[in-house]
């Protein structure tokens, strides 16, 4: 089921590289869900929590503002800062 390759990058290096099933991106107008086969998209991200669901469970990352690009089941998240939130 995991079909989306998610890359969360900051200027200091990658924070997360994983194949996931769904990604939830925080934007200024609420969160946007991305599933397999999503149309190409560029969106501005605001500070908030990014969620991604994979077969291994759900991960949450706190991210700073930035930008995300979705294309061909690849999600690139470029942000000023990111850190994994522990459960």
């Amino acid at each position: 089921m995991d079909a989306i390759s998610l890359h969360v990058l900051t200027g200091d290096g990658p924070v997360l590289e994983q194949t996931v099933e769904a990604v939830n991106l925080p934007t200024a107008f609420g969160s946007i869900g991305v599933l397999k086969g999503h149309a190409p998209m560029l969106c501005n991200l605001e500070e908030g929590v990014l969620r991604c669901r994979s077969s291994q469970g759900t991960l949450r990352l706190f991210i700073g503002s930035g930008i995300a690009s979705v294309e061909h089941n690849e999600v690139n998240v470029l942000v000023s800062a990111a850190s994994l939130l522990e459960e």
Binding site: T27, A28, F29, I32, A39, P40, M41, L42, C43, N44, S65, G66, I67
Partner: peptide, 16 residues
């Protein structure tokens, strides 16, 4: 390309 821009082109360009 044919890309959805959220919220709009200007804001995305500014951010980039």
């Amino acid at each position: 390309g044919d890309v959805i821009l959220e919220p709009d082109e200007k804001s995305v360009l500014d951010r980039l």
